[in-house]
């Protein structure tokens, strides 16, 4: 294949990656932005979403689209419920102290991961895509499902953005993010907002996982990569900044996709990870974030 089409293919792969990453990172960013909690178990919510998608779709016979659509609804709901319970039982009792919550979410990471290992096993299992005809481009054929993932992700990000900026729920969340105590004084049920945001963050990761699972199989260790990449995206985009998160997801997804095609994926990760560590050291507000209080 000539260089041009090759680059186009790499870009498309990068965009699929960016689409999933944007949703996952958005969840992490939301939780950090509103609650100031770094959720190390975020990747496990992603993994749980993928595994549940396999489970749900395996229950339904017939057209794979039915199973998939069911998974798209049920899996995030279950993941959201798990997140809600862990928030109530653990994070709230820790009063959201940053160090304690990090330790607790590390614990949560192991618990979810190991429970999945126990009940789901160490195998990687695929979910059949709801549709998968190939779109014929002049140089190569490309999966229509992958393009649909990109479109779905754009819709979901827009929907999240709409909720956050144009609805009362979003207003309440932003008020809490700005100053929890003042929000409380104005009658915002901060406690419930926290629970809701934590569940919502996990659900975004789960949706992203359901979308990706027809492309990448469900496995109990698949949570680590999205966790680290989401960290990278959230840090580069500026902690808690919605627009920055999306821009950074596209940037990281694309560059990771393109670099991985031309160089070793390990080298790509080494470069991205060191870059991010240095961004955090020298420009903690992120590359696109504004200086905060």
């Amino acid at each position: 294949m000539a260089f041009g089409p090759y680059l186009l293919l790499a870009t498309l792969e990068g965009l699929v990656m960016a689409a999933v990453l944007a949703l996952t990172a958005l969840g992490l960013s939301l939780v950090f932005g509103v609650m100031r909690v770094v959720n190390v178990a975020h990747g496990e919510f992603f993994m749980l979403g993928a595994v549940l998608a396999w489970w749900v779709s395996s229950l339904v016979s017939g057209n794979p689209a039915i199973g998939f659509l069911l998974a798209l609804i049920v899996s995030p709901l279950i993941v959201g419920a798990v997140a809600l319970v862990s928030e109530r039982l653990v994070l709230r009792r820790l009063d959201y102290k940053p160090e304690a919550t990090i330790v607790a979410t590390i614990g949560l990471l192991y618990i979810i991961q190991q429970l999945v290992l126990t009940f789901y096993g160490p195998e990687a299992r695929p979910v059949v895509a709801p549709f998968d005809f190939r779109i014929r481009l002049p140089w190569f054929g490309y999966s229509s499902y992958k393009l649909a993932v990109i479109a779905a992700s754009i819709l979901l990000v827009l929907a999240t953005w709409f909720v956050l900026t144009r609805t009362k729920i979003g207003l309440v969340m932003r008020a809490t993010q700005y100053d929890g105590e003042i929000a409380q004084a104005f009658g915002v049920p901060v406690d419930r907002v926290y629970a809701g945001v934590f569940a919502l963050g996990a659900m975004l990761a789960a949706v992203a996982a359901v979308l990706i699972v027809p492309i990448q199989q469900a496995h109990y260790l698949m949570g680590l990569d999205p966790l680290l990449l989401s960290f990278i995206v959230v840090i580069i985009g500026g902690l808690g900044s919605l627009r920055g998160t999306v821009v950074a997801a596209v940037l990281i997804g694309l560059s990771d996709g393109i670099i991985s095609v031309f160089f070793s994926p390990t080298l790509a990760k080494i470069i991205a990870t060191s870059f991010v560590a240095l961004v955090l050291v020298f420009r903690p507000q992120g590359l696109f974030g504004a200086e905060t209080r």
Partner: peptide, 13 residues
Amino acid sequence: LLVVGAALILLIL
């Protein structure tokens, strides 16, 4: 490793 996770949460709580 489930034990590791449970221990972390119980300790910190």
